[in-house]
Write a protein that binds this DNA or RNA. Sequence first.
DNA 1: CAATAAATGGAACGTATATTCCGTTTTCCG
DNA 2: CGGAAAACGGAATATACGTTCCATTTATTG
Lengths: 280, 280
Amino acid sequence: MTDESAGPPGPVTVTELIERIDAVAPGLPKRLRQCATFTRRHLHLLAVSTVADMARAAEVAPSVYIRFCQGLGFSGYSEMQALFRERYSEFRPDYSVRFANLREGASPDAAPGVDRLIADFAESGHKSLLRLRNTVTSSAADRIASDMAAARVVHLVGARRAFAIVANMAYLLDKMGVETQVRPAAGLIATQAALRPGDIVFAVTFAPFSQETLGFAREADAAGIVVHGLTDDESGPLAEVARALLVAREDEVAGFRAPTAAIALSTALCVAAGALRTET
Amino acid sequence: MTDESAGPPGPVTVTELIERIDAVAPGLPKRLRQCATFTRRHLHLLAVSTVADMARAAEVAPSVYIRFCQGLGFSGYSEMQALFRERYSEFRPDYSVRFANLREGASPDAAPGVDRLIADFAESGHKSLLRLRNTVTSSAADRIASDMAAARVVHLVGARRAFAIVANMAYLLDKMGVETQVRPAAGLIATQAALRPGDIVFAVTFAPFSQETLGFAREADAAGIVVHGLTDDESGPLAEVARALLVAREDEVAGFRAPTAAIALSTALCVAAGALRTET
DNA sequence: CAATAAATGGAACGTATATTCCGTTTTCCG
DNA sequence: CGGAAAACGGAATATACGTTCCATTTATTG
């Protein structure tokens, strides 16, 4: 017979590959099963790793990993890896055409090009992150992190666009054992009574600045509570009340901004606070 | 002199690489500048492409691309590529050692180096954004955007880490005239009745996956409502219910992740949906 | 417990890739 | 316009990688 392969045909999609691995894994000998379980958990490494890398990571010999691939229906490691490299860069065959489209700007068809928008926001994110290093003063960041770590409760305030930042911080700080309270956009004054000595306020607001957030910060400041903040304009209204102020300016795409730099910065801040707290 | 290299030292982070390219590009001859502009636009291909691929895509000879790498301070293409492959292959440390990792690289004094953490998260953000362009399938993004634009109400579900993403989307979609409802983490079943024909559900969940979010998505799917989603594992449980699935995998810093790529992706998606809605 | 089959890991092999070399072309100054 | 320096691209070379082979070890069965 011309097709001597007794084994089943090789998977042509990632979904098929996963199903195949799950199907054969239980009946596999020790080393081969190591390949299966590790590969299943680290599928994303396939595109960028050599067979030696994968084998070492799965704690098997390279030849064993090759046999694992072959047992799945591939001719070897390279063929299996190709499955992932294709998927990672879909336009590989159309390089020149695609590149021309990029140069020209808008794509020829009427579609608004979600693809291109994603690329634009990714590029915009790069720029925002690059600028982040220039706008942040490390002394302010240090002070905020240590105050957060020492605080009884960290009160987080932010509305509209800033609310996502605050939500992310609340999640992180909570996981790290720092007690937080997220102040809702409405009814701020009513909850003012909950502020007590030892608490701090972290206010987040971007232009155009939220009056509710600023109002809460001012009242807290007047009550003697330490207020820190994050904004996108170092000379904005938040600078007047915040003792330490972080600045994250976002690049924009056609007038829209993703809070990329702010998310990165605030995450770093929370991790730093968590590290300080567990340290002492 | 022992160190004969007149050129500057090679970049050791993606951030430095981007800055270096932008700095030298203007003064470069024709072919080398082609390398610069193409590389700058398609950084994400570096991890999965050979030098021949990159050269062909940039429409230069392989040797020219090598010289481009060397002009940047690398010994060759492989060294530059390693910059992008390194971080991918790191394993996830256990929770207990994450903070220990942080202190290890910190400055000698007791301070945990918030400054350094910010730089690390910025670098991590770059890598997440680079990978974003490899993991997103444009057909899925197109479909989600058009479904969102056409939907009566977009129901957003996300808990914990995913909640910040959902909050950002709610703000954006709302601003663009797309009606949204954010489903709270608790009491999901009670609100199930609010789902009506013409609505769609957008579910966001990252590993370890939220049972509440998955449960809501499953119920909506069973009720015949279109469910789309965003996650960080294309083979995760959300893949079973979502008709179109977006994937944003985040790079990590000592075990901690900022939702940088997810924020950029979801923002692009919302802007696309808004553009579609106002267009018609 | 012995005999047989399967599995394993290291070493050898062939191929594909990155890198260097050098003749040719283009660009830059005088 | 002419000479020198830089840049370019294709061919040659070195290296790294995937793959196969085979001796040894481990599991299986009568």
